[in-house]
Amino acid sequence: MTSTESRADRFTRELSELKIPDPSAGRSSLWLRLGIALMVVGPILGVVAYFMSHNTSDALVQRDAIVVSILGVAVAVVGAALYLRYSLTGFLRFWMARQSFDLGMLAERTSDSEVQA
C-alpha cells in the first residue's frame, strides 16, 4: 500500500478486483420496483374484491370476488418476497465485500506484527 493511497481508495480498488457486480447495475432494481408494485397491487385487489362482493347478491359473483381477494393476497406476498430478496441482496453483497476487506487488513496487520517480532 502506498502512502498516498487512502483506506477508502484501497477498498474501492480491492472491491473492483473481487469482480463483485455493482448492485445498481443489472436487473435487481427492476425486480425491487416490481416487488414494491406488487405489494401495492395486492391490497388494491382486496379492496376491489370487497366492493365486488358487497354490490351483488349473486353467489357466483361473490365467489369470483373471493378468488380475486385470494389472488390479491398471493400477489402481495410475492411482492413482499421479491422486495425482501432484492433489498437484502444489495446490503449483504456490500457487507460480504466489507468483511473480506477487513479480514485482509487483519491478515496484513498480523503478518506485519509477526515480521517485526
Rank of each mutant, 00 (worst) to 15 (best):
T2W: 11
S3L: 07
S3D: 12
E5Y: 09
R7N: 12
A8H: 15
D9R: 08
D9C: 01
D9M: 07
R10N: 11
R10D: 11
F11L: 05
F11M: 06
T12R: 12
E14R: 08
S16V: 05
S16Q: 12
L18S: 13
L18N: 11
K19W: 08
P21G: 03
P21W: 01
D22Y: 00
D22C: 07
P23D: 03
S24Q: 10
S24K: 08
S24A: 07
A25R: 13
S28C: 08
S29E: 15
S29K: 14
L30T: 15
L32E: 04
G35N: 03
G35K: 03
I36A: 08
L38I: 01
M39W: 00
M39G: 04
M39A: 09
V40P: 00
V40N: 09
V41W: 05
G42I: 02
G42C: 11
G42A: 04
I44S: 12
L45W: 05
V47Q: 05
V48S: 01
V48E: 04
V48P: 00
A49F: 01
A49K: 03
Y50R: 00
Y50L: 09
F51Y: 05
F51G: 11
F51T: 05
S53G: 13
S53L: 07
S53Q: 07
A59N: 14
A65F: 07
A65K: 08
I66A: 13
I66L: 12
I66E: 13
V67Y: 08
S69M: 10
L71I: 04
G72K: 01
G72V: 04
V73D: 07
A74N: 08
A74F: 14
V75W: 05
V77N: 02
V78N: 05
A80F: 04
Y83P: 00
L84M: 07
R85N: 06
R85G: 10
S87E: 05
T89P: 02
F91A: 15
F91R: 15
R93L: 06
R93M: 10
F94T: 13
F94K: 14
W95D: 14
M96S: 15
R98I: 01
R98K: 12
D102G: 02
M105C: 13
L106A: 10
A107S: 05
T110C: 02
S111L: 09
S111H: 11
S111E: 11
S113L: 10
Q116S: 06
